[in-house]
Amino acid sequence: MDVFMKGLSKAKEGVVAAAEKTKQGVAEAAGKTKEGVLYVGSKTKEGVVHGVATVAEKTKEQVTNVGGAVVTGVTAVAQKTVEGAGSIAAATGFVKKDQLGKNEEGAPQEGILEDMPVDPDNEAYEMPSEEGYQDYEPEA
């Protein structure tokens, strides 16, 4: 019985440690998101679009440190934060509304985080759909 109880105690310690790591990862992701939003706020009209992409990228980098179902929630929060940063930029006159959601080359930025393969159960990952990809044929 002692062996059984000791095993359960060790398992509990492992769960607590994993929860603490997840909590730490979420806190880091939130900190990076805040950094990115402050970065966007300090940019001029020309830099705002690039700044919004930076927020998304920093958040995406930190999301990889967070495991399990938390990833889905962090990704949703990050996307809403990026959308909010863009709205703030438009409201303050840093950028025109028609410039939001495009990178410096004018290509749409939507789907940055949505296409990231995420499995809350950590069982399997699927690649994003290939609808947006084109076949590449090298020139002879």
Rank of each mutant, 00 (worst) to 15 (best):
G84V: 05
G86F: 15
G31C: 09
D115Y: 04
A69L: 01
S9I: 13
E13H: 10
K45G: 06
G132Q: 12
P128Y: 12
F4D: 00
S129C: 05
E123D: 02
A27H: 08
G93D: 09
Q62K: 10
S9F: 14
M116W: 12
T92S: 13
A124D: 05
G106R: 01
G31I: 10
S87D: 07
G93L: 03
A107Y: 15
E57A: 07
F94E: 07
D121P: 10
F4P: 00
M127L: 08
A30D: 00
Q62A: 10
A124G: 10
P120A: 05
G31K: 14
P120V: 04
T59N: 02
D135P: 11
A89G: 08
M127R: 08
V40R: 02
L113A: 09
P108Y: 04
P128F: 10
V74C: 14
E35V: 05
E46R: 00
E105T: 12
A90W: 15
T81S: 03
G73H: 11
A17M: 15
A78D: 00
M1L: 03
E20W: 11
M127I: 11
V15K: 01
E126D: 14
V52G: 01
V71D: 03
P108M: 08
V82E: 05
V70D: 05
G84N: 14
G67R: 01
G7A: 04
T72F: 00
S129T: 08
T59R: 02
G47M: 11
T92Y: 04
T64D: 05
E126F: 08
A90K: 10
F94A: 14
A69G: 06
V52A: 12
M5H: 12
K43N: 00
E35N: 12
A78G: 07
G84K: 08
T44V: 07
E139C: 09
V71K: 10
T44L: 05
D119T: 08
E35W: 12
G51Q: 03
V77F: 14
N103E: 06
T22Q: 01
D98E: 06
A78I: 15
G84M: 08
G41V: 06
E114S: 10
V15N: 00
V95C: 13
V118W: 11
E13T: 11
D121F: 04
S42G: 09
L8A: 02
V82T: 03
N65E: 08
K10S: 03
Q134V: 08
K58R: 01
G36M: 11
M116E: 02
Y125V: 12
E123L: 14
V37G: 05
E105D: 12
E46K: 11
G7Y: 08
E126C: 14
K96V: 15
D2Q: 12
E126I: 04
G7R: 12
T81F: 01
E57H: 04
E137V: 14
K97P: 13
A91M: 12
N103Y: 06
K21T: 05
V40L: 12
Y136F: 14
V3N: 09
Q79I: 10
N65V: 11
V74P: 04
V16F: 13
P128L: 09
G51T: 11
V37C: 07
V70N: 02
D98T: 06
Q99A: 11
G41E: 02
Q79H: 02
E83D: 05
V48L: 10
Y133V: 12
I88L: 09
G25W: 08
G93R: 08
K58V: 14
Q99N: 07
V82Q: 04
E28K: 07
L100A: 06
K43Q: 10
M116I: 08
I112M: 11
K23E: 00
L113N: 04
E104Q: 00
A11C: 01
G67V: 08
E28H: 00
D115R: 08
A56L: 03
T75N: 09
S9A: 03
N65T: 12
T54K: 15
Y136C: 09
E131T: 09
K23T: 06
